[in-house]
């Protein structure tokens, strides 16, 4: 598959995949695990994220995979999309569509991905652009909670224990998921456009600000005991806001989140099919359809609260394997081969 990305397209894809499904679900498990110092933990985690990006940037040319590693990534991404699909469908059922058959909702979401992935690569790449205004709208509406924020909630700091810091780091990985696409798509970025240095730092700042803002607003709005009860604190916060033009602001943003997740699934599916075509270039249409049949059917087995919680926990560990460990091994092996 041959396609070219501009620098902005590359960063946008990365940002959408990293924030796509996790943005609403990230603050609660992270802050609950890290304790009152969660905002400090995230600053340190943010620094680690930048180091990871620098590592990817320095070594992406050495990230060349064979069919076996390719299959591992395809299975990982299939798992990831199933988790995302199950989670968004469960959330939609709980918040908005309790009576609608879940297979209908999943089928509708997956059809968008099928359409995009049967089209040219540009369709997938440019789909993310439609999210840019929605992200701004989302951030603006969160400001409605400004008068309810309690700044003393940030203090006292230094209270989290070593175990809480460790758990916090682990949960912070939710915000890292998707960064592995860097090593796959980096080589498709226009070689005339510079990534190293300031552009990469700018992306890091953007990613950090976005997630740090979500952590901060959740800490300032909720007490630790209140947060323990809420799996989607930002959605609950939006539900509590009273506006004149819509009865339920949370539903409005739930739809935005759904679109966000669909586009994330489109991109991850695109990445999986891209890796598949590196080694198996025949029957492209058939394979795309099979992939999407999996996406419709498999999430149906995991639509309960228990599964959603467990799967969301598992993907953190899988990310450590596929975002950190495997790229490290592949890069080191290829570097040794070159020597």
């Amino acid at each position: 598959m041959n396609f070219n990305l501009s620098r902005n397209q590359f960063f946008l894809i990365l940002f959408v995949v990293q924030s796509g499904s996790s943005f609403f679900s990230f603050p609660s498990p992270f802050v609950n695990a890290a304790g009152r110092d969660a905002w400090l933990v995230f600053i340190v985690a943010g620094a680690l994220h930048y180091m990871l990006l620098l590592f990817y940037e320095r070594n992406y040319k050495n990230f060349k995979i064979g069919p076996f590693v390719g299959w591992l990534y395809k299975i990982y991404w299939l798992f990831l999309t199933i988790v995302y699909m199950a989670y968004i469908d469960y959330t939609l059922a709980v918040w908005g569509f309790p009576e609608t058959p879940q297979i209908i909702v999943i089928a509708v979401l997956v059809t968008v991905s099928l359409y995009a992935n049967l089209s040219r690569a540009e369709t997938v790449i440019n789909l993310s652009v439609m999210l840019i205004p929605l992200i701004f709208v989302f951030v603006i509406f969160l400001q409605f909670a400004w008068k309810d924020l309690v700044w003393t909630n940030l203090f006292p700091f230094g209270e989290s224990t070593g175990a809480e810091w460790a758990k916090g780091f682990l949960k912070a990985q939710i915000a890292f998921i998707g960064s592995e696409l860097y090593v796959f798509f980096r080589k498709h970025v226009d070689s005339k456009q510079k990534i190293k240095g300031r552009p990469l730092f700018f992306y890091q700042i953007l990613w950090f600000t976005f997630f740090f803002f979500s952590v901060l607003i959740v800490i300032l709005y909720y007490t630790p005991r209140g947060l323990e009860r809420l799996p989607e604190p930002l959605l609950f916060l939006l539900k509590a806001q009273e506006v004149t033009f819509v009865e339920r602001l949370d539903l409005f943003f739930l739809y935005i989140w759904t679109v966000w997740t669909i586009i994330t699934i489109v991109i991850i599916s695109f990445a999986a099919l891209y890796v598949h075509r590196l080694h198996f270039n025949e029957h492209q249409k058939r394979d795309t359809i099979i992939w999407h049949i999996f996406l419709v059917l498999l999430p149906l087995f995991f639509l309960s609260k228990g599964f959603v919680e467990k799967l969301n926990d598992v993907i953190i560990y899988l990310y450590l394997v596929f975002g950190l460990f495997i790229p490290l091994i592949v890069i080191l092996m290829n570097r040794r081969k070159q020597k």
Partner: peptide
């Protein structure tokens, strides 16, 4: 094929929510 998928997507969006009215 693409046209069929596109039409199905548009039609299915109209369906979702009927159960929850």
């Amino acid at each position: 094929m693409k046209k069929i998928i596109l039409i199905s997507i548009v039609c299915s969006f109209l369906l979702v929510g009927c159960w929850d009215e």
